[in-house]
Amino acid sequence: MRGIFLFSACVCIIAVAMICIFLFANGIPFFRKFSLWSFLTGQQWSPLREIFGIMPMIIGSFYITIGAVLLASPIGILTAVFMTYFSNEGINRFMKPSVALLAGIPSVVYGFFGMMLLVPLTKDLLNLSSGKCVLVASVLLAIMVLPTIIQTSAAALSAVPSNYYEGSLALGATHEYSVLHVMIPAARPGILSGVVLGIGRAIGETTAVIMVAGNQARMPQGITKGIRTLTVNIMMEMGYAADVHRDSLIATGVVLFVIVLCINSIFSYINRRRVIQ
């Protein structure tokens, strides 16, 4: 019986190990021909002429991820606070499934929503020539990472022992004051890890972004101009890429993998600190 459990656990580990081996085994040879430094800092991407610089895509990824998290964090955290301390059974019975549903919508549906609604709306409201831009991508990603932030923050808030709250009230603080100055600080590591998880989700999103970001492989020109992210770069060109071009896309994947690894390390560092506290 123990064997079955062990086998199930191994499947997951093996999958991770195989992906790592595949990525690095296929990605490293590329760096024998092209220097890692020029790959990371090059500002031009012309794969057919063998000019590989993914700086625009790295910045692009960070650009829309930061935008998304800046938009989603306050909304998400305040929603979690509302659901935990200011809501009632009736509202929560409606809210919780709604948030869960938001998390379950496939990204292509988000992309479609962005492309058909947000893109033309932004184009008209801001009087742009094209609505496919950093702003729309960030807003769309913000909606997509909201459930992650809400659910993690709500869990963190509920996990704060209720005697903190009661103690605060006993000292004469109001409900609002107790929530803002006692409960939220106490739940901070949990909330923070929710935000980091959100960053992870945002930086890895592809399908929805490809549909609304314009996908220009050039340095960012402002939030109302298009952009290409690392994930989009891989997905966009994989179809017809051959030889070195294909290797360069796998190398892009390696860079993305390392970035996500860093984000996850930050996440587990925050989590560990929370356990110690």
């Binding site: 094209s130 496919k132 490809i210 314009g214 996908n215 220009q216 492989a217 050039r218 101009k225 298009g226 290409r228 997905m235 966009m236 060109e237 179809g239």
Partner: peptide, 8 residues
């Protein structure tokens, strides 16, 4: 042009 929107 680098300003061209790219679709795949």
């Amino acid at each position: 042009t680098l300003d061209a929107e790219i679709q795949n």
